[in-house]
Design a protein around this nucleic acid. Sequence first.
DNA 1: AATGAATGAGTTTTCATTCAT
DNA 2: AATGAATGAAAACTCATTCAT
Lengths: 197, 197, 197, 197
Amino acid sequence: MRKRVLSPKVEALYRAVMELVLEGREIRELKVSEITERAGIGKGTVYEYFDSREELLLSALRYLRQEWAENLRGELSRLDGFMGKIGGLFDQTESALGKIKREALKEVYEIFFFSPAFQSEKCCGMAGQIYCIVDEGRRGGVLRKELPDEYIALALKGKIIDYALYCGGMGDCAPGKCTSAQIRKYLLDSIRMEFLA
Amino acid sequence: MRKRVLSPKVEALYRAVMELVLEGREIRELKVSEITERAGIGKGTVYEYFDSREELLLSALRYLRQEWAENLRGELSRLDGFMGKIGGLFDQTESALGKIKREALKEVYEIFFFSPAFQSEKCCGMAGQIYCIVDEGRRGGVLRKELPDEYIALALKGKIIDYALYCGGMGDCAPGKCTSAQIRKYLLDSIRMEFLA
Amino acid sequence: MRKRVLSPKVEALYRAVMELVLEGREIRELKVSEITERAGIGKGTVYEYFDSREELLLSALRYLRQEWAENLRGELSRLDGFMGKIGGLFDQTESALGKIKREALKEVYEIFFFSPAFQSEKCCGMAGQIYCIVDEGRRGGVLRKELPDEYIALALKGKIIDYALYCGGMGDCAPGKCTSAQIRKYLLDSIRMEFLA
Amino acid sequence: MRKRVLSPKVEALYRAVMELVLEGREIRELKVSEITERAGIGKGTVYEYFDSREELLLSALRYLRQEWAENLRGELSRLDGFMGKIGGLFDQTESALGKIKREALKEVYEIFFFSPAFQSEKCCGMAGQIYCIVDEGRRGGVLRKELPDEYIALALKGKIIDYALYCGGMGDCAPGKCTSAQIRKYLLDSIRMEFLA
DNA sequence: AATGAATGAGTTTTCATTCAT
DNA sequence: AATGAATGAAAACTCATTCAT
């Protein structure tokens, strides 16, 4: 539970990157000068802490994922039971998506769902949270014995992604007759039916 | 509905982009000079056909998706029945991922699964195929009446993404006790159970 | 005798470097923008021909040495006899130094006398010319048999350096009672006395 | 005539510069941070003692020359007679060059032989020593009356440079048939023949 | 007096785009 | 229509210098 203390300048840089991403900018297109201006620090300062713009961006990405995952963990820790936590996951997903600009959705999806899969810290983001929930559910005996944890976690992650895509309003090409509440109900039902003992 | 014949230069450009992406490059980071070199044409020629690098990249992206989707459509057209086509979708996903470099996975996922959601041609790629399958299944009466097409399509897409992530070998953080064949079986079972009438 | 044809842009860059050096600038302190401005070409053009500023500077240096050595060779080729050519060497040295700004002396000495010693092209500059003269003198039988060519060449080079330093008006710390003509006479006398058979 | 005691910080800076030069770095390309790191003091401290990097570098240069010249003077003071001291000059030159890295040769030559010529302290380095020796020789009556001191000093300096270049192993382009001992003998012979009464 | 984190002016370098051929 | 050398605006990066501690 030790939060590594960041240099305030580095923290300011990470915050600036986050703000810009949430405003819809693509992370890989951010200029060093934009970030430092937003962070309110000098351009050269970046190079006291990072070897290059590339490194800054990668570190910021890692940090954002970590931050969000930690938030998520905090919220979920207050909830009980397998389905309770799953519900929390949906809640958090929905509320997080509600706060960001439409143009930022793509980048946020990528940062939160996709790119972690290609990093060594696979277990620390959303995927890590889901795994904990599954683990707890298993120990509580609420999950079907014949389904391996690995599959359940994978399938749950897929359902969160489904929901996130839908909430982003871009889930499908159909004329969108369902509300997101309906979609959520279907998804939760399917989870109950498929995974619960 | 005839496929418009591309200028050979444009085709060469699109192929070059595809090659580079399959070698693991991020599409948004490709330089004009790289693409034209790979395509074997002059740098200036790009601007005979496109207004800017941006436009070239977007067009190439659209083209790649279209190509892949068309291949997919071709393969699926030889298969019968809802579950037959779904099985084909899994087959195609697996074989496609088997052919590309590990570094290219991320970009290919993004191009194929994610970014379409943010384009006007939402219905033309993988999502479009899935929608057709659902539609056909509906007309054939094999799908549960109480589930809307929209949800089924969304959920199916999620399962394909699950499978793709798993095949990419990066699906989860568990020590990987399941084979991809097992995962596939679980996913197909869940589809049968949840959606079939 | 084939002069390698340079791209006109590269030639312009080399000329610009030469001009700036002769005006007293230190070659290693030249800015890319200064050089390209002087050369009358775009800043980016440098990077079409060189990988970096450093490379440009090194190439320009090599070129300057080559150029000057070639001029020297041309002038000397019109003169006959060992002492005739040696005299020419002194003439050329004096006239070359007369043409450049005082502040450029240091840099020019370095380029012409010193740095060649640290390059692979040792034989191509002033040292190379001297060696040819010694060689010719040896074949003509005018040099003392007991002195090896190597020593004679070395000693001659030293005398040219002496003269150059003196002409640069910085030869010594003495109040300078000798004229450069006198110094020259002493140097030529010593050459005659020591090396001639 | 007492040597002014240097602040330990300044001394550390000078030593650091010397070390770096002897490792092959060009003095004009040294960064302030490199020097202070090597000296083991804070970067800002430089500006307590020097107005600018430029001034630090010039002072360090002066110091290095002075140091070396003082060493030289010390060694030579133990030797007697014109040719004895000249021999000592050659000894010192050879042993000094034997101690430094090959890459440092160029810079050391420049610092020791060349750049003094462009400084106000012309008489204080090697040139100064030579002038003293000539002076002493003159007073002792061992030098030819018809040769002015100025020329003798100049010529002697040239011979030392010759020897230094040769010892640096880069004296000429000939296949190097002479040993440095031979070259030395030739040079000493020539000095005896030309300058001694 | 000593420090070193922070700075930003001043560089180098990149690369999409143009345009003469 | 095709080219690629040339460009320069815009970006990354460096590093001497400052100044709060």
